[in-house]
Amino acid sequence: MGWRAAGAILAKDLRLELRRVETVGTMVVFAVLVATMFVFAGDPTPQDLRRLGPGALWVSLLFAGAIGFGRWFAQEERNQALQGLLVSPVDRAALFAGKWAGATVFLLGIECALVPVTLTMYQLDMRGAWGELALLLATVTIGYSALGTFFAAVAARTTAGELLLPILLFPLSVPLILAGAEGGQALVEGGRMGDYWSWLSLAVAFDVIFGTVCTLAFEYVIEE
């Protein structure tokens, strides 16, 4: 597989996004806002907050991702940039890998701001398990970005693109969200490392399966 081609696509996407940093900034604000609105869904006591926190974090990321994936793919549709990529001698799998890596980097960037804010707002105590939290975040984000990039390409071929993307993406992401929320919960409560590792391995298995399937099937989505 063309690692260099994938790297070039990733670099191109990063450069584009850094030129208008305000988009990523807006998405951070959006994600934080969703996490805030969650608090208004009830009249939460500190215990409720701690119970809701990990889930609220993942739902905010879910929403931010659903908006982001569509945009990151739509920029390829503009000015027929995608056609340009398709006629270039780039392997379809490399093209997907590049877009996937880009989406992962953006989501991780959003998390860098979102996670500290959520931890504070929901009064979550990580009990020093920062490495485990980072590992969980990265694993879930990689899988979610694979599905997101893939279905953004599918949804771009429909008339209801932005509306259809979450409808396709959310149900299929249920295992990832459960892994993120429940694994995070296990860390917050402390002393449930067995549960944490179970959920983490589920997310890893998900990443491996859907990373492979989406990379292989991407060719059929964008084929002209």
Binding site: F150, V154, R157, T158, L168, P171, L172, V174, P175, L178, A179, L202, A205, F206, I209, F210, V213, C214, A217, Y220, V221, E223
Partner: peptide
């Protein structure tokens, strides 16, 4: 072609969803 791809990916996810739920 588009639907076929969605049908395949969706079906592969079913056992994982079962397990996670």
């Amino acid at each position: 072609r588009l639907a076929a791809v969605v049908g395949i990916v969706g079906f592969l996810d079913v056992p994982i969803i079962h397990l996670s739920v």
